[in-house]
């Protein structure tokens, strides 16, 4: 049996908006990693795409000097998550070991209250039973549940990877193995705009960035949700441009 880690970890992410090119590689990687159903063109256009992360595209500047701004938006794994207390069946719960928000599909009865209450709109809902066409079923990741109709789902910080890493670290007796874990989106990001790591680890490269960067801000931190994701943007504070 795997040894229980003495100290709970707190996984976090830093997203450098100055490096993000809006290429959507993270979105694609996430969809492949987490067995996300493709719901079809019309449904996606209507706002029923099941993507766990999305690139928000805003424009800044006046014509003709217009430029896009990209914000990868995913579940912020809040410390005080608004989705958790409103779920009547504890389908949306906080995990002690990883310090993230879990969605327990078996327990979800589909009230969709959590999705309404999420200020980041990070949650998506399985409106139908989606079919996986024949060759595509071979792509399914065996570590991740294929969700059925009527349940809510959202980004898990690739919790299956975290668990695998913890088991590897415990069985091989090498805690550093756990620090090498990363999420699918961070792994796929060509510009390294997404960085993932353990915030309790003194040597973690993202810890300083997460807590101390002058460019750092958290989205809607005024709501008191204590997100686990810090965004970095062009000097100054709180989204101010250089």
């Amino acid at each position: 049996m795997a040894q229980v880690t003495e100290q709970p970890r707190k996984w976090g992410m830093v997203i450098d908006l100055d490096l993000c090119t809006g290429c959507n590689a993270c979105v694609t990687a996430c969809a492949m990693e987490n067995n996300i159903h493709y719901t079809g063109e019309d449904e996606v256009a209507y706002g029923r795409g099941l993507y766990w992360m999305r690139i928000q595209r805003y424009w800044h500047g006046e014509y003709p000097n217009v430029g896009p701004e990209f914000t990868p938006m995913l579940c912020q794994q809040c410390g005080e998550a608004p989705c958790e207390p409103v779920c009547p069946t504890y389908a949306s719960v906080h995990s002690n070991e990883e310090q993230i928000n879990l969605q327990v599909y078996n327990r979800c009865i589909g009230t969709r209250y959590c999705a309404n209450n999420c200020p980041y709109h990070a949650r998506v809902f399985n409106f139908f039973d989606y079919e996986i066409p024949a060759p595509m079923n071979a792509y399914l990741n065996p570590d991740v549940t294929v969700r059925s109709r009527g349940v809510m789902e959202k980004c898990t910080f690739c919790v299956h990877r975290l668990v695998h890493a913890r088991i590897d670290a415990d069985t091989q007796g090498d805690p550093s193995l756990e620090n090498e874990v990363t999420t699918a989106c961070a792994q796929a990001c060509p510009t390294n705009a997404i960085m993932f790591g353990d915030l309790t680890d003194e040597n973690s490269p993202i810890r300083t960035l997460f807590e101390r960067s002058e460019r750092g801000f958290q989205i809607m931190e005024e709501l008191g949700t204590f997100p686990s994701i810090t965004y970095l943007k062009g000097g100054g504070v709180y989204g101010g441009r250089d």
Partner: peptide
């Protein structure tokens, strides 16, 4: 309005194999 109406009884406080009561912090309860 439930997504999975056949599991509505998860909201009912009754002793069950899952050892779970409904979440009393939820306004839906």
């Amino acid at each position: 309005h439930l997504g999975r109406v056949w599991t509505f009884y998860y909201m009912v406080p009754y002793p069950n194999a899952r050892w779970l009561w409904p979440n009393m912090r939820s306004p839906l309860v």
